[in-house]
Structures are given as structure tokens and as C-alpha cells.
């Protein structure tokens, strides 16, 4: 129950409601145990965007600075949407992969724990 107390009726809208993104939706990406980056980073993309674009373009652009990036065995990567495990289909869209507005995609690369195993 909200504890908010006001002097008058108080109706406000979310500043980040999906309608404010003109057909796009927000998506956050986090590489677990690799906190060297703008940790999760945020994108605004149409829900029709294929998942492969996320990996090949956005994730590669950001994460390839890290020496672990080249070492990733993509067959062993563990994916989560928020706290829920899921297996994305590269060739399907965000929407078809069940990814909605402000979802957080987390991926774990077993055996790769950042620079000298520090989680960075």
C-alpha cells in the first residue's frame, strides 16, 4: 500500500511508459561478472528487432574491448530475462522471444569471470 500523502488528488504518469518511445521499447543488457562496462546498458529498439542484432551489433560493439569476449563459447552461455532463465532464438524478434519493455537480459559465460577472475 502506498504511503504517499498529498494535499490534493495526485495523478501522474510514468515518465518511461512505452508510449513515450514512439514504437520502440527499452531493453537492458548485462554481461554477468563483467562489470567493467556501463554495466547493464540500455537500448531503445522496435520489438521486431531480431535477437541476432542485439548480439552481433550492440553487444559486440560494447563488450569486444574485454579480452574475455573472444573466448566466449556461445553454446555454453546461460541466458536470463530478469531472474527467469530463457533460451533466446537468434533469428526471432525481441517480441517473439518474449522480451518486453524494460526487460533486463542477463547472460553468463561459464568459466569467464572477468579480468583475473575479479568479476570485472
Amino acid at each position: 500500500m502506498s504511503h504517499l500523502k498529498t494535499l490534493a488528488p495526485y495523478e501522474v504518469k510514468s515518465r518511461d511508459a512505452v508510449e513515450n518511445y514512439k514504437g520502440k521499447q527499452l531493453l537492458y543488457i548485462n554481461w554477468e561478472r563483467h562489470r567493467m562496462f556501463s554495466r547493464p546498458f540500455v537500448l531503445a529498439l522496435p520489438p521486431e528487432t531480431p535477437f541476432s542484432v542485439i548480439v552481433d551489433q550492440y553487444m559486440t560493439d560494447c563488450f569486444s574491448y574485454h579480452p574475455d569476449w573472444k573466448q566466449i563459447d556461445w553454446n555454453t552461455v546461460v541466458w536470463q530475462n530478469g531472474n527467469t532463465p530463457f533460451t533466446p532464438d537468434r533469428n526471432k524478434s525481441l517480441k517473439e522471444n518474449g522480451i518486453g519493455h524494460k526487460d533486463l537480459i542477463r547472460f553468463r559465460t561459464p568459466g569467464l569471470d572477468g579480468i583475473a577472475g575479479t568479476g570485472y
Partner: peptide, 17 residues
């Protein structure tokens, strides 16, 4: 210390982190 802390609530159908 190795893991990022995330928390999430849903309010009026929208996620907040």
C-alpha cells in the same frame, strides 16, 4: 562482490529497476 545487484518491482504493468 562479483555479482551485480538487481531488484525489480512492477507498478501499473510497468517494470522498474
Amino acid at each position: 562482490p562479483m555479482e551485480m545487484c538487481f531488484r525489480e518491482s512492477t507498478y501499473q504493468g510497468e517494470k522498474f529497476h
